[in-house]
Design a binder for these strands. Structure first.
Length: 561
RNA sequence: CGGGGAGUGGCGCAGUCUGGUAGCGCACCCGGCUGGGGGCCGGGCGGUCGCAGGUUCAAAUCCUGUCUCCCCGACCA
């Protein structure tokens, strides 16, 4: 166990000027990590200990559900990626070897693992099983950010399940879900498991594990018994008070008013009493007019899912003829299919009249224009799920589990012969966790003004022993003895035996580094026969009798989070 | 990729507008004091001012180009 006098823990009083996120500032200040370039980080000894603590929890829980650890190369032949179709992804690093052969740096390992499994599995008797590895991932991110939260190179545990059929995959998936729940509990994080979008990979279901924190990149919609990424979240909209119905749409002059807010203000109506119209070009389908309540916003991912295809906003020259001028568009009389958001209740609305400076009031969906329904809006705080209002919080994704299906077994010919001798595709799932993000999320969630406050399971060291006496003093000898005893008692100890740092500096560094328990030995200990023990989280102090202090520290340690 | 900001010693910064021999705090080295909350005194080391080109008697400073990093957005297995 290290003595700080000879340990590389490069703490800093000031954070790097360009750091914004709490975890970015503190992990650098505490001497855990150093930056090499955009999204490229080196772990210092203490930082690597925390990282490996997280990785070890993951390994234990993977082993526990019978997953087998392997190791696959980062450097892959490009041919595999061309076969899966993922070679086209911009984030894949591409390179050539000296012979000019195309290579890629793996961002995950579906191609490689499926390539092997395709050649190794012949019979249904060999299924199911799962493999995992903990390996460096490379991604040419468009924008690395926030220290360790989004990097171009990082270590990830990725696991792959192989089953005979969809039911087997479902069962396997549940087992991984249980393991993931345990991992994040053990890591000491506050976390949510949320429904997530299956994205461009297709698939049969996916969940993300989200750790709420200020620097998070994702928004999560939360209500009692409900948690979903806002990318896919659905909720009951708040009610909106609509005006009295009319027999037919009625024109209202709105010269110069082109925004929802302006029109609503002029007519004295809530924004939700208006309908907002967005023309989009759906891939392969052409122009579609998407209509949502005036106070709602389109969610691109949900709209993509509702359309069943990708889309882009239409340009004015594409919609002006068939619909109307921007600022006064509406579904009535539009010569295009209308996709009406589910949150639009029946009733009379104000819409654009498709003529400059003119709106319509009393417009009723169905009576005045034909439509198809779809859930395409972004949920808003205050919407309800089962009667409970949702709130929206930022969070960082720390893990994800994903039912791949046969997305990779098809191109790689990963098949087996069933009981009847018929060839069947293997059903796959993939499961990722980033230990670095677990650590960064823990820093984000539990930091205070003084620095980091590690959960017991992740901390680089269990106990931070501060020795205040100098070489040759009696209190120094006492600290040395306690250090030995703590190590013998099985605790990981970092011992601050530095001669050239005063008490203030030592305490400040201890709080910055954030080990759960700090023990201080100085002259006072000699006088009182006691050692000061301070619990990092909450910074409560108590005195431990010198006699048996190591065991008392172990006991206290057991009670910590 | 769009918008904004920044590159001056290990960290944080001033100096740039108005060109004239590069400075401050912290850290570091030496000596001394101090020793339960980043302490004090004295003496030191360390910088081709991101890079390249140009203007000029003279460039950290002006001009051109370029690289890098950060933030917001887009993007994101």
């Amino acid at each position: 166990m290290p003595r700080l006098s000879s340990y590389l823990l490069p703490t800093e009083k000031q954070a790097p000027a360009d750091a914004e996120a709490i975890s970015h500032k503190l992990m650098v200040r505490a001497g855990l990590v150093r930056q090499l370039g955009a999204g490229l980080w080196t772990y210092m000894p203490a930082g690597w200990r925390a990282h490996e603590n997280a990785a070890q929890i993951v390994r234990e829980e993977m082993d526990r559900i019978g997953s087998q650890e392997i190791l696959m190369p980062v450097l892959n032949p490009a041919e595999l990626w061309q076969r899966s179709g993922r070679y086209e992804i911009d984030e894949v690093f591409k390179l050539q070897d000296r012979k000019g052969a195309e290579m890629v740096l793996a961002m995950t390992n579906e191609e490689v693992v499926t390539f092997h499994v395709a050649s190794l599995v012949r019979s249904y008797r060999q299924l199911p099983f799962s493999l995992y590895h903990v390996q460096t991932k490379e991604r040419d991110e468009p924008r690395p950010r926030a220290g360790l939260l989004r990097t171009r190179e990082f270590i990830m545990k990725d696991a792959y399940t192989f089953d005979r059929d969809r039911a087997g995959l479902d069962e396997h998936y549940e087992r991984f879900r249980g393991a993931y729940d345990r991992i994040f509990d053990r890591a000491g994080l506050e976390w949510y498991r949320v429904e997530s979008d299956v994205g461009m990979m297709g698939g049969f279901g996916a969940h993300e594990y989200m750790a709420p924190c200020a620097a998070g990149e994702n928004d999560v919609a939360l209500a009692p018994g409900y948690a979903a990424n806002v990318e896919v979240a659905s909720a009951e909209p708040t009610a909106v008070e609509l005006p009295a119905p009319r027999d037919a749409p009625e024109e209202v002059p709105t010269p110069g008013l082109t925004t929802i807010a302006e029109v609503a203000g002029k007519l004295g109506l809530p924004e939700g009493a208006l309908l907002k119209a967005f023309p989009v070009i759906a891939e392969g389908r052409g122009l579609v007019l998407v209509v949502v309540r005036g106070d709602h916003q389109i969610n691109d991912i949900k709209l993509t899912n509702a359309l069943g295809t990708t889309f882009r906003p239409a340009r004015e020259d594409e919609f002006a003829q068939r619909i109307g001028p921007p600022g006064s568009m509406g579904p009535v009389g539009a010569d295009v299919p209308v996709l009406l958001d589910d949150a639009v209740a029946p009733g009379p609305y104000v819409t654009g009249a498709n003529r400059e400076g003119l709106h319509l009031r009393g417009v009723e969906p169905g009576r005045d224009f034909p439509f198809k329904r779809g859930d395409v809006r972004r949920v808003e705080p205050g919407d309800t799920v089962d009667g409970h209002a949702i709130r929206i919080e930022p969070a960082i994704e720390v893990g994800n589990i994903f039912k791949l299906g046969t997305r990779f077994s098809e191109p790689f010919g990963a098949t087996y012969l069933d009981e009847n001798g018929a060839e069947q595709l293997i059903w796959m799932g993939s499961y990722g966790i980033g230990p670095a993000r677990i650590c960064a999320a823990a820093v984000e969630q539990f930091a205070d003004e003084q620095g980091i406050s590690w959960p017991r399971s992740l901390t680089p060291f269990d106990v931070h022993l501060v020795g205040l006496g100098r070489e040759g003093t009696e209190e120094r000898a006492l600290a040395e003895r306690l250090y030995e005893e703590l190590c013998e008692a099985g605790l990981d100890v970092i011992y601050d035996d530095r001669e050239d740092v005063g008490p203030g500096g030592k305490f400040a560094d201890a709080e910055l580094l954030g080990c759960p328990l700090r023990l201080t030995v100085g002259k006072r200990s000699l006088a009182s026969g006691e050692v000061e023990a301070q619990v990092r989280r909450g910074q409560e102090s108590r005195a431990l009798p010198l006699e048996g202090a190591a065991q008392a520290a172990v006991d206290l340690w057991q009670t910590l989070a």
